[in-house]
Design a protein around this nucleic acid. Structure first.
Lengths: 358, 358
DNA sequence: TCATCTTCTGCACACGTGTGCATTACCGCA
DNA sequence: TGCGGTAATGCACACGTGTGCAGAAGATGA
């Protein structure tokens, strides 16, 4: 009707209807542009009437700003990273940016996928739960697209990173377990080649050492439920049996609880304490009530996006590594104080019944 | 070096290096274009050397195909929809498409967000776990952007939908529970205004009716853990107490199990059978071992994307509603056969010990 | 050798927008 | 009236690409 059966309404159509030039239309949609209030009013009214909104593709071409951010998430089946993605979307939206998503398996080579993102001229790249090679990193840098990792970091100085204080989180768990009287303490690692798992272990084992306790056992669960069940079976079969396990994420901790209860008949936290990392929703479910380190997801995401935008807009800014503090969310899967061991041993020897005094 | 410190490499740069025209470069990257093998070879080599890949923004502008698809997910904290998103990404990638993500709270008005997606000239819109108003739907239709809902449907004929056979899934659960000897059967709805919850209830209650059983109780959990715990407390406080609950999704079913065990001291499936819907990862965890309806996520997503592409490419195609079959995954949270009631009652009266015969 | 056909290439236009620059309209003041 | 100054507007170019069309180069047949 207007021009081409209203299929695609262009700024020229709005201009004609409002009786102004195409430039005026453009300016009406540009924050802080030099335009009379009256004119802007007219333009917006005409736009409303025609259902016009500026073509973001064309705008991106001319401004060399696509207003899109590439977002890479390696493991969406992990609720923590689903949460990261959700928070990222919301935050980007608040900045008028749109997330162009790239999902991949854990071990898949991002290197072949990132160029695809760059082809879309994204203003930057956020990568959660994965890393990229230095080759691709420099390629991004050369193209002027800042890269910010979430929860991982690398040594190339072209890449920024925002992580939780994984070392600190590990230390906090160590303190908690030792305070609970545990001495035969085990660690269940995530993926061996991730900085997150390594740092949590470093903090945990380091603090145990400071407290004069050596790690009793160690295994690897690959951050997954299935991997963890097998690993926990091995851990709990060891003699003497561990009396506490720190798992590098919640999914594995939940697997640990399941195996401990159902396959070994243990009761938590009497026979065994278990702590996790991430503080996902399931950690607060009654069935698990899991002590877990909270990564402050919202703050991590907000920091990452702020950093990305600064790197994009401020030519003087340099890539950096930011840490966000961790917080231990204490729940029922770890005990607060040592049990009165002697008493319990006595009752056991005497048989059923017995003193319920301290 | 080449032109502008290699900041943005353009097709003209490649053309010069390869000693051909810019058109040849374009054709080298276009499937099935009219170009000599030798020339293409030259161009690709030069591109490799310069790290060139065509600017997808510019291409989108000229071809009027952005090769991006708007993907809307309402509830990423629900692992099922996180899975939908992951599958969607993978499938789109296989078709050379990129997902432009839009995440929103459940009740938020998509109507203000969808135009944002359209501004990016997406080739179509996929919406999971949410719907849109007819106003916006016609706006999409007028712009020639097909819309496909996943797991919801609406009556406007401009909008396609792919859903699981929710009625069939509800019926299958009814059959299973009745076969287990249950007669006081309750239903826990999700969100009242969703077609998914309504259809599951319709199938479930309808089949119960065919079997001569009236619904014993009903409540609403809003598809969330917290909402469900409160609702299940009410359900299990009713006298006589329900002996089976069908929850409209797994998250609520898990809440139901937790409340039943920890607050009412019930044992599953002896005292209570519980079934869910979605078959999320957590349903197979040892701690829950939840009978659940599998929606065949991959097939739903694949169907939705095929439909979207057909609507985009074939001018003769019309919006439609496709159903994917449901499959009941039977696990330990529902019993297979009625318990030998009389015997159990006898043993109870007599005290401990007693016949372990049938 | 010439005509015809095939195979490929390059020219030039188009996509829809933002923005620098020149120009216009208008107001106040001498 | 004339003039300088300010506020607003329109012109025209640029962004990087795909593709219709015409034409060139080479092959084939008469």
């Amino acid at each position: 009707m207007k021009s081409k059966s209203s299929y695609g309404i262009r700024s020229i159509d709005v201009a004609r209807l409002a009786g102004v030039s195409r430039s005026a239309v453009s300016r009406a949609f540009t924050e802080g542009a030099y335009i009379a209030d009256e004119t802007r009013e007219k333009v917006l009214k005409a736009s409303e009437q025609l259902g016009y909104s500026p073509n973001a593709i064309a705008r991106g071409l001319i401004t060399r700003r696509s207003r899109m951010v590439g977002v890479v998430v390696a493991d969406l089946s992990n609720p923590f990273y689903a949460g990261v993605l959700e928070a990222t979307c919301l935050k980007l939206q608040q900045h008028g940016l749109a997330p162009l998503l790239l999902s991949c398996r854990h071990s898949q080579d991002l290197d072949s996928l990132i160029p695809q993102l760059l082809a879309y001229q994204v203003d930057g790249v956020l990568i959660a739960a994965s890393t990229l090679s230095s080759t691709i990193a420099t390629q991004c840098a050369r193209a002027g697209r800042p890269v910010v990792l979430i929860n991982r970091y690398v040594s190339y100085d072209a890449v920024s990173a925002v992580t939780c204080d994984n070392v600190g989180g590990g230390r906090a768990v160590a303190d908690r377990l030792v305070a609970g009287g545990h001495r035969r303490i085990a660690f269940l690692a995530g993926l061996e080649d991730t900085s997150s798992s390594r740092d949590r272990e470093k903090g945990f084992v380091g603090r145990l050492g400071e407290l004069g306790i050596a790690l009793h056992a160690r295994d690897v669960g690959n951050y997954a439920y299935e991997g963890a069940t097998a690993a926990v079976r091995r851990l709990l079969s060891k003699r003497p049996r561990p009396d506490a396990i720190f798992c590098a994420n919640d999914t594995m901790a939940i697997a640990a609880i399941d195996v401990a209860r159902n396959e070994f008949g243990l009761e938590l936290p009497r026979d065994l304490s278990i702590a996790g990392y991430d503080n996902i929703d399931a950690a607060s479910w009654q069935g698990y009530d899991l002590t877990s380190v909270d990564q402050n997801l919202d703050r991590m995401v907000a920091t990452a996006i702020d950093l990305l935008l600064r790197l994009r807009d401020d030519p003087g800014s340099r890539p950096q590594h930011v840490q966000v503090p961790a917080r231990l969310e204490v729940r029922g899967s770890t005990r607060a104080v040592p049990p009165a061991k002697s008493v319990r041993r006595l009752t056991k020897l005497r048989g059923a019944g017995g003193s319920r005094a301290a």
